[in-house]
Amino acid sequence: MNVFRLLGDVSHLVAIIILFLKIFRSKSCAGISGKSQVLFALVFTTRYLDLFTSFISIYNTVMKVVFLVLSYATVYLIYLRFRSSYDSESDTFRVEFLLVPVAGLSFLENYDFTPIEILWTFSIYLESVAILPQLFMITKTGEAESITTHYLFFLGLYRALYLANWVWRYHTEGFFDQIAVVSGVVQTIFYCDFFYLYVTKVLKGNSKLTLP
C-alpha cells in the first residue's frame, strides 16, 4: 500500500458516498445517469468475485464490501425508491455499445483465459467507460448540479491517483499491470474535459455547472 493508492481509494469512497447521500437526502436522482450506476455495480460485481476465495487484508475485504453495498444501494435508490425522479429521457446512452466491445476485448486481451480472470479483465475495461452515460447525460441536459460535479471530480481523481500509484509501484517493486494501467489512462482521459470545466466553473463558485 502507498499513499497514492490510499488517497485514491479514499477519493473513490468519498465519490460514492457523495452520490449516495445526494440522492438519499434530496430524495431525488435528477441529473444522475442510472445506466452509469448499473455499470459501476457490474464493475464491482465482476471484479470482487474473489471476495470469498482470496483474502488479501481486512482493509481490502472491508472496502470491497462497502463498494458493493453502496453501489447496489445507489442503483436501488435510482430505479426503485426514487424512480419518479429518474430522468430516463435524458439517460439514453446505448450501453450495449460499451458492453459488447468490452466483453469481446476481455476475451481477446487478458492475463489468463479463466472465468475469474476474464471477468476481472471485463471489470477493468468496463470501468474505463462506465462514466460515459453520465457524461453524455450532462452534455445532453447542458447542466449538472454542483454536488454531481463534486461526485465526478472525486471519481475522476481516484483513477488519476491510481496512475500515480502504478508509477510508484513500478519504481519501488517493479509491479506493472498493463491492462489496468492502459484502461486507467483511458478512463482518466475521459474526465479531462470535465476537470477543465470543474476547475474553471464550479470552483469559481457557480451554483451549478452549465455547459457552454
Binding site: I56, F67, Y111, D112, Y162, N165, A180
Partner: peptide, 10 residues
C-alpha cells in the same frame, strides 16, 4: 498471456 499480477488492488 503475460504474467498475471496478483490483483491486490480494489
Amino acid at each position: 498471456a503475460d504474467e498475471s499480477p496478483a490483483h491486490d488492488e480494489l
